[in-house]
Design a protein around this nucleic acid. Structure first.
Lengths: 387, 387
DNA sequence: CTGAAAGCGCTTACAG
DNA sequence: CTGAAAGCGCTTACAG
């Protein structure tokens, strides 16, 4: 077997006309390394079912009888390598359970095969919304089909660009970002743009839509329209929107208003503003304004969690739903089907968003997608029992 | 300002007595790099609010007027650096928004500051259980306080050790793993053990408990006991356990049986086995065995999702809960409080688990925790309306 | 098609 | 306390 060390071409005296001889690759040093590293790190030489933990392309090259350059090319399926050589090396690698050291690869290529999934940090809740959880869960799987791993992170309200949003990119921990954007600010997006790194916004706030970046939008105006339409079709004439303040909610309200205007019947509607989207907040706000709420016959709430707060408050105070008041939610999270009455709601196409977002970011990272990717998806009405 | 290049000590002719001059660090090469890399990667020199994307310790060193070794030490807060130098460098780094290249650091130290959060892949559901989501969400935050990022991954049933479970470790993408272990197999754990890498099991199946690895267990026997005790205290005498097959569920059943044996009253109990933990499965199974179910007066279901399936089926078929049949669930997911009647259930201490797991894995990674970490936590009963 | 070399951006033993 | 050097494990331009 041909070992790479010592290199056969080393001139005994060095070339006289060069002051500095090239630094011959340190081929010798497969074992005795100068820099120590233990302390919790994986022990050198540990093996697992015949799979060695610290297999490198250098060792693979020794076993295959080629240079490690060739091993590297073979493993990356380079067309420069002879087919038989490639097959030999690949099968050897498989047998020995070789896994590339992602840090080394990343350092050499300048790109880590991870994408950051970043969503707004709600200090109010110890966990993400059901909607976010479902989306993350699905994206992780889709990402895997592209050979990408998912790193999760949060971002705070308006803390500027030194958030996790840019950190992961700047540390080169991720090759790109999928950002659940409904709370990302314009300065943050601009900072990202200046970084010129791959990122994609899901559901950005209206003020962001004209930013020249990849986006997947949901037509929330239509969502609001659909909600009002359904309520009106159920014969409801005095409507109430339970909503948080914020541009992203106003859009839905605009759709709502348009449906009301489109209706042939005389419809009145009003708004009950809640401070945040927590279940408890919705519940308590409705309880505090019971008379106003009971004066209406149909409620549109801006998220399923909010809807469930409204629904439960109504039920607990003896208001029959949907007999006296209809309720329409928004999101169609898993739990919307488990309430009694089951929640009629506007479905956000999470699976589709996950698939598209994932394909898009993968393409951007691969350099396949160069121009701005913008997709606008339509929500749909899911008819259940609460309206 | 003293720049590092060219090195002042280069002998013009090279030392005569050495064949190979030492390879002087390539200090020159801060700009003209040989290896190209673009294609979706972050553009060189892009800047963001005065923060340069590709700031390195080399450039920092030039600006600070020291060697980059000193910069490295200063940034890592080494006691070897003079305090004033350290402060100078650190403030410069902060000003310029320097962020370490995590791949380079990882390659040099052998450890990446990420931990993998791995949970069982349920092919049946497009998203994780609410319990898992909540745990992941909390762990991510706790991890951040240790300077660790969270990488999420799944593992399949019994596909052996070439899962994501070992992949992330072997690729050096993570320094350690937190594994939601209720479906991890003994061979998988053994493979992990042979790898000698930091990992911690949450809630492993009973057959794993004697493996010499870090674990956080929940006393599910007690959980089962508490459930039966509550049902009995509510005057229930003919009990039914709705459960999946599996060791981890048998433990709860044992606790349940013990409570029945401890009771002074004559209690009968039976088991209704469901094929999996899906809501629909629970609902349909109860519907298919309505007579048997109606013959009992108290149900203990093995997860909240299952309980809600049972609850809804009962409600939908006109059985009043808890008047005719009491229901006790397991897990205490967020949604348990939103059902009507609100679900009485066994609370798993997710927050505590998240905090402990996170502290433990951080300690193991840091090398602080050397002996086996085993924590056994106790579930508690949450009394609501369904029992 | 293949190999030797240089480089990616860090850390750290070694030698002042 | 500081600097120059070597090394981490890859990729890839360059030269056969």
């Amino acid at each position: 077997m041909h070992l790479q060390s010592p290199p056969r071409t080393i001139p005994v005296d060095g070339p006289a006309n060069r002051v500095y001889a090239p630094a011959y690759n340190r081929l010798q040093n497969t074992t005795g390394c100068k820099n120590r590293k233990e302390a919790g790190a994986v022990r050198q030489g540990a093996s697992c079912d015949g799979l060695v933990m610290d297999m490198t392309i250098r060792k693979l090259a020794q076993l295959a009888g080629t240079s490690y350059s060739t091993v590297s090319r073979a493993l990356n399926d380079s067309p420069l390598v002879k087919d038989s050589t490639k097959r030999h090396i690949q099968s050897l690698a498989r047998q020995l359970g070789y896994q590339v050291n992602s840090s080394a690869k990343s350092l050499a290529t300048g790109m880590q095969m991870n994408v950051g999934l970043v969503y707004p940090f709600h200090s109010l809740r110890p966990y993400e919304s059901a909607y976010t959880s479902q989306a993350i869960s699905r994206m992780r799987r889709e990402l895997a089909t592209h050979g990408l791993d998912a790193l999760v992170a949060g971002y705070g309200g308006g803390e500027g660009p030194t958030d996790d949003i840019t950190r992961l990119l700047r540390q080169k921990k991720v090759a790109g970002l999928i950002i659940f954007g409904y709370e990302v600010s314009r300065p943050q997006v601009d900072a990202l743009l200046r970084l010129d790194a791959p990122f994609l916004l899901i559901n950005p706030a209206p003020g962001i839509e004209d930013a020249p970046c990849h986006q997947i939008r949901i037509d929330h105006e239509l969502g609001g329209y659909l909600a009002a339409q359904r309520l009106i079709a159920a014969g409801r004439r005095r409507l109430l929107c339970v909503t948080e303040a914020g541009e992203q909610f106003d859009v839905r309200l605009r759709g709502f208003a348009r449906a009301v205007a489109d209706a042939e019947e005389a419809i009145t509607w009003d708004t009950l503003t809640i401070e945040n989207g927590l279940y408890e907040t919705a519940y308590d706000t409705v309880a505090a304004h019971l008379d106003e709420v009971r004066a209406c016959d149909g409620v549109f709430a801006q998220s399923d969690l909010t809807s469930i707060g409204v629904l439960n408050c109504l039920l607990d105070t003896g208001v029959p739903v949907p007999e006296q008041i209809s309720v329409v939610g928004y999101d169609d999270i898993e739990w919307a089907q488990y309430t009694r009455p089951a929640l009629t709601t506007i479905h956000q196409p999470v699976s589709e968003v996950a698939r598209l977002a994932t394909d898009a970011i993968a393409a951007v990272i691969a350099g396949t997608q160069s121009d701005q990717y913008v997709e606008k998806l339509q929500p749909t009405l899911v008819d259940r029992e609460s309206c």
